[in-house]
Structures are given as C-alpha cells and as structure tokens.
C-alpha cells in the first residue's frame, strides 16, 4: 500500500507540475490539436484520480494490501454500523479529506455546468428576441452592434451569433468560413470539452497549472474548429477572416486576453499547415490511455 500511495502521489505531482507546465509549450501540439486535446483530458482525469487515490490509499492502508480491497472492507464495515470502518482517528481524517476533495471537484463541476446552462439559456432567449435572422439560406442571428464579434451558443437549441460589425468586416466567402468554424464548435460539443477545465481552474485558483491547462485547451479547441471548418472552406479564406477579425477588434487600451491559442498562431497555422503526423497522433493517444490505466491499476494491484 505504501508503494501504491507513493506511486499515485508521484503521478499526480508529475502531471500537475512539470507535465502541465511543459505541454502548453510543445510545438508539436499545433500539428495534432485533436490528439493533444485527448491527452489533456487524460492528464486531468488521471491527475485527479491519482491525487484522490494517494490520500485514500494512506487512509485505508491498515485494512488490506490493495486499495480496492481496503475500500471494500471499509464499505462493508461502514454498512455494518461501524462508521470509522475500524480505522484510527488519523486515518479517518485522511479518508474524510479524500472524500471531501472528491466531492468538491464533482460539486464544482456540476455547479459550473448548471450555471453555464442557465446563463446560456437566458442569453439565447435574448438573442432570439433582439437578433435578426442572418439570411434566408444561412442559419444565424445578427446583433446590431458595431464591434465585430462571432460566437456560438451550444446546447439543445444551438445558435450562431454575429454582430453587424462582423458582417461589414467579412466578404461572402470569409463569412461562410467563420460560420463553418462556429458550427464545428457546435457539432463537436466543444463546450463540454472545455467545461471541466474552466470549472476546475475557477475552483483551484491556487493551482496555476490548472489555469495554464485551461488556456491551452481553449486554444486547441479553436484549432480543431479551424481544421473542421476547412473541410468546407478554404484555409486561406479562413486565415483572412481570422486576421481581419484580429486586426479590427484591437481595443484602445491593452485589454489583451491570455496569449495562448493566439490568433496569430492560428493564422500562421492555417497559412502554412504543419505536416500531420500519424505517428505522433498514435503516440499521444497511447500515452493518454496509459495515464488512465495507471491509477486504475494502482487501485487493483497489491503493493508492498
């Protein structure tokens, strides 16, 4: 059990520390944004499970030599009317820490999902009320506002929203490319991909790596949407639209948002697409699967 606990703790520390620090800087992520996104998801899940597992392993160590066996024994005793499961005070406190931490992570996620759905519904109803239909043959709503903006509202009744300022900025082909980009977000439910990273970066502001991972995931999601849009639109046209958008919307002051997944990177990527690498793709997915297998294995294997 000591080995299990130490292994899990190490895994969590390595994932939340150096890995989350270095991965946003990896140049190859731009070549395979989709696989990199899968890797980020695996890192998040694996780090969370490992951290919780490490605390739980130390807590229930006296009960059995496998984490799974110990947890089962604890559950049996708990149900049989022994609230501490035969654990001493220190171990009981540790187990409670693990439970509270796990409940908090899930609770924050549920709360964030609920708030997002509510805010989105309210926003959508307002857009439906004051927006005007884009054109007869193109789905979308236009808000009368001079600042160029284009965004989507995912969900059961999705919407693509543009401002009149954005319509003035783009020619017809560019507009089609922008719409394809927003529809790609909707079709792939990128809001669900982003949700846990957004929720946990809000809940754990003292963990800078979580914030960094959120920024990286946001950028990757944009690149994936760019790629999918380019199945229907020309890469150069989308690059034009993106660059036009970026240069038009410069605020007077330095109101710059976080630089990751920057517009400039995306434009360069569209103009000179990095060669796709199936080998890198397989490697990333393999690492992702391994990361998920590690805490699962630690649950079942007996340690010394």
């Amino acid at each position: 059990m000591v080995v299990t606990a130490v292994t899990l703790a190490l895994l969590a520390v390595v994932l939340l520390g150096p890995v989350s620090h270095l991965l946003p800087r990896a140049g190859w992520a731009v070549a395979e944004p989709r696989a990199t996104l899968v890797l980020w998801q695996a890192i998040g899940l694996s780090a969370g499970l490992a951290a919780l597992g490490a605390v739980a392993a130390v807590a229930v160590a006296p009960l059995s030599d496998t984490l799974f066996g110990a947890l089962r024994r604890f559950a049996e005793r708990f149900v049989a009317g022994e609230p501490t499961g035969g654990l001493g005070p220190l171990h009981t406190v540790l187990l409670m820490v693990a439970v509270v931490l796990g409940a908090r992570l899930l609770g924050v996620l549920a709360l964030s999902a609920w708030r997002t759905v509510r805010a989105r519904g309210r926003h959508r109803r307002m857009v439906d009320l004051i927006g005007t239909p884009l054109t007869a043959d193109r789905d979308g709503l236009v808000l009368d506002h001079p600042a160029p903006a284009a965004y989507c509202l995912p969900g059961g009744t999705p919407r693509v929203v543009l401002t009149s300022g954005a319509l003035e900025l783009f020619d017809d082909a560019e507009l089609a490319a922008v719409l394809a980009h927003e529809r790609a977000h909707l079709a792939e439910r990128h809001d669900l991909v982003v949700l846990p990273f957004a929720a946990w970066s809000a809940a754990l502001p003292w963990l800078p790596t979580v914030r960094r991972s959120r920024a990286a995931v946001d950028g990757l999601v944009e690149m994936v949407a760019d790629d999918r849009a380019c199945l229907h639109a020309d890469r150069t046209v989308l690059a034009c639209a993106l660059a036009r958008f970026g240069t038009a919307g410069v605020p007077a002051g330095a109101l710059a948002a976080t630089g990751t997944g920057s517009v400039l990177t995306r434009v360069h990527r569209l103009l000179d697409p990095p060669p796709r690498s199936p080998r890198l793709r397989y490697a990333l997915v393999t690492v992702a699967v391994t990361l998920l297998a590690l805490p699962t294995a630690a649950l079942l294997l007996s340690g010394v």
Binding site: T116, A166, E182, A202, L242, F245, G249, A254, A256
Partner: peptide, 20 residues
C-alpha cells in the same frame, strides 16, 4: 470569466497591440 460566459468562445480572442 469562468462560468459567467454564456457563449462557448468568440471566433477569436482580443489581441494585444503588439500582436496586432
């Protein structure tokens, strides 16, 4: 801001004057 944003993401984030 984390969960106040109703929209998924804008087509492009705002850029700094240097990036512009």
């Amino acid at each position: 801001a984390e969960d106040r944003s109703a929209a998924l993401a804008s087509f492009a984030s705002q850029v700094s004057p240097g990036e512009a």
